[in-house]
Simulated scan of single mutants.
Amino acid sequence: MAKVKYYYDSETLSYQKIRRKKRTTLKYIMAFLLASALFGFFIVVAGSYFFESPKERELSRELENMQLQYDLLNKRMDDAIAVLENIEERDNAIYRLYFEANPIPEEQRRAGFGGINRYKQFEGFDNSTLIKESNKRLDILEKAIVVQSKSLDEIAILAEDKEKFLEAIPAIQPVNNEDLTRMASGYGYRTDPFTKVRKFHYGMDFTAPRGTPVYASGDGVVKRADNSSSGYGNHIRIDHGYGYVSLYAHLYKYNVRVNQRVKRGDLIGFVGSTGRSEAPHLHYEIFKDGERINPINFYYGNLSAEEFSDLLQKASLENQSLD
């Protein structure tokens, strides 16, 4: 029960009960409720500011973990970019240079993506910048990897083609050194054995006994094996591809047929003296894109430096040819 309160009335010289008006009571009640509400709001706000709920703590941990993962992702991208840059440098400076291919421009390797905003879905978050930049770097890295992958595919094709080219190009002497009597005549102006007139000799003459083996100087296909070309007598022409053709003239007999595929070093015929020939020898020519060129430049495959130097000296002598 609420305590009864009194006050002293000086007029009546007696104590009177204090009677609270209803309006005043209502004011007190409203003031109390307002104060309670404000206090509760303050407690809630202060608590949310200084203290985290279990759900908030869980979300906070997830956010921190996400940021850590993005940091780790960026570190891995840094490592991947460093490795890729090393491959790109070797690709441009070694591989593509060796195979005579144009280097890939840097702007093509590092090109971004134009047009629409590809990263709009990452906007509006606390870590939007981090997420956008990470995805942008990842996209550029993926594109650079695709460009490099295509480049390596191209290099593989060029390497395979280069290997075929190196196998096909006429690169060995068609008659073994031990089978030679002498190197009779080289490429250049020589004295004609029949007319004694100085004229250009378009091949090299290898003097050897009749029946000495003649070898294909490179991989290719036999296009001719006949004696229907003026002056050459029995002769063979091998198409090596890449614009190269080798010719072997004045043969005693053939060891191949037309359209036969041969490998470098295969026995294709034997030295003779057919056609316009003064003595047994092999007349050897090389054509590049239909033009006859000096065969002396194509003996790197089976001659030592000393042997090549000796051959070069003998071939340069302006003597009499044998055809």
Results as ranks from 00 to 15, higher is better:
Ala305Asn: 07
Leu303Arg: 15
Pro295Val: 07
Leu312Met: 09
Glu306Gln: 03
His281Gln: 13
Ser309Trp: 06
Arg292Trp: 13
Leu311His: 13
Gly290Pro: 14
Gly290Met: 15
Glu285Leu: 08
Ala305Ile: 01
Ser304Tyr: 10
Ala305Thr: 08
Lys288Trp: 06
Asn297Ile: 05
His283Thr: 00
Ile296Pro: 08
Ser304Gly: 15
Leu312Ile: 04
Phe287Ser: 13
Leu311Lys: 12
Tyr300Asp: 04
Asp289Met: 11
Phe298Arg: 08
Ser309Val: 04
Glu285Lys: 11
Ala305Phe: 06
Ser309His: 00
Pro280Leu: 10
Ile286Ala: 09
Gly301Arg: 11
Asn297Thr: 01
Leu282Tyr: 15
His283Glu: 00
Gly301His: 08
Asp289Thr: 04
Gly301Val: 09
Arg292Thr: 15
Pro295Leu: 09
Leu311Gln: 04
Tyr299Ala: 02
Leu282Asn: 14
Asp289Pro: 06
Glu291Asn: 15
Leu312Tyr: 10
Leu311Asn: 06
Gly301Pro: 01
Asn302Leu: 02
Leu303Val: 00
Tyr284Phe: 13
Ile286Pro: 09
Asn302Arg: 04
Arg292Ile: 13
Ala305Val: 11
Asp310Ile: 01
Asp310Val: 02
Ser309Asp: 02
Glu291Tyr: 12
Glu307Asp: 06
Phe308Tyr: 03
His283Asn: 08
Asn294Thr: 12
Lys288Arg: 10
Ile293Gly: 02
Asn297Met: 00
Glu307Lys: 03
Tyr300Cys: 01
Glu307His: 03
Ala305Pro: 01
Glu306Val: 05
Gly301Thr: 10
Asp289Lys: 12
Phe308Trp: 15
Phe298Ile: 00
Arg292Glu: 15
Glu306Asn: 04
Arg292Ser: 14
Pro295Lys: 11
Glu307Ala: 06
Gly290Gln: 11
His283Ala: 01
Pro280Gly: 07
Phe298Gln: 02
Ile296Asp: 14
Phe308Glu: 00
Asn294Gly: 10
Tyr300Pro: 01
Gly301Ile: 09
Glu285Trp: 05
Pro295Thr: 11
Lys288Gln: 13
Glu285His: 06
Asp310Thr: 07
His281Leu: 14
